[in-house]
């Protein structure tokens, strides 16, 4: 693979990742969300592998493999199992309606692009253009957490944010040092486990996963 092709491929994957982010924002069904999330992980892992290959950085393969394992297989599986067990396949109600969310999302992408433009000029890496996409993905994940009601969807939003971070790490910097990558991966895994525990706890104590039930701790004015 020549350099040019890999750039194009990488940009292409970046576009897909962005697309999946929007898809996550638009998707109403939990199961659909999971599938899209797995796809996003897959694109991410692919992108890492391409960068690893092009720039010839060994440890990026490891992180590509980790991503594949974690984001495409393990986490979606855990969530899937959870959903099945708790039987929560109903539609997810967004707090803000979807067209509005999409419009905000578009604005965020433009904003991220504008923000990273000067930085991009400085970089010598071939993957530098993707920094904007990474930032957008993070912000879109954030937006998703804000606009969705259910605990599970918040978890997916959170993981989507992490995807954005991963993408930033691989694409903007050719990956962080391995120790850090491993540590981050471990943390995410623990986080996912805790999410699982939590969703059970919430389910058992509140009898629902709707976060609007969890508004008891507040200030009375």
């Amino acid at each position: 693979m020549t350099h040019g092709i890999s750039i194009q491929l990488n940009n292409f994957l970046a576009a897909f990742i962005l697309l999946t982010s929007f898809a996550l924002l638009a998707q109403r069904r939990i199961y659909g969300l999971l599938v899209i999330f797995a796809w996003q992980g897959f694109f991410l892992s692919l992108s890492s592998a391409i960068v690893a290959y092009t720039a010839d950085i060994r440890h990026l393969y490891v992180s590509a493999a980790l991503t594949l394992l974690l984001k495409v297989i393990v986490l979606p599986y855990i969530l899937y199992a959870l959903i099945n067990k708790l039987n929560i396949f109903r539609e997810v109600e967004p707090l803000v309606n979807i067209p509005t969310t999409m419009l905000i999302g578009v604005a965020l992408v433009i904003f991220s692009y504008h923000l990273t433009a000067p930085v991009r000029e400085l970089s010598t890496l071939f993957t530098r253009t993707t920094l904007a996409v990474a930032l957008s993905t993070v912000l879109l994940g954030f937006l998703m957490m804000i606009t969705r009601k259910k605990a599970v969807t918040q978890v997916i939003g959170f993981l989507a944010m992490e995807n954005g971070l991963f993408f930033a790490a691989t694409s903007a910097t050719y990956g962080m040092p391995l120790v850090v990558e491993l540590g981050v991966a471990l943390d995410i895994l623990i986080a996912a486990l805790i999410f699982g525990i939590f969703i059970f706890q919430i389910r058992t104590t509140f009898d629902t996963l709707d976060l609007t039930e969890m508004e008891k701790l507040k200030e009375d004015s």
Binding site: S123, M145, M161, G164, A169, A172, T173
Partner: peptide, 27 residues
């Protein structure tokens, strides 16, 4: 449980943003 969930989500998101900062620093 509610408190822990809020703690977890808010700090999780926060810490995720800090990771982005770390990445930029490394960048």
């Amino acid at each position: 449980v509610e408190a822990a969930w809020k703690y977890f989500i808010l700090c999780g998101v926060g810490i995720a943003l800090a990771l982005f900062g770390t990445i930029l620093l490394y960048f």
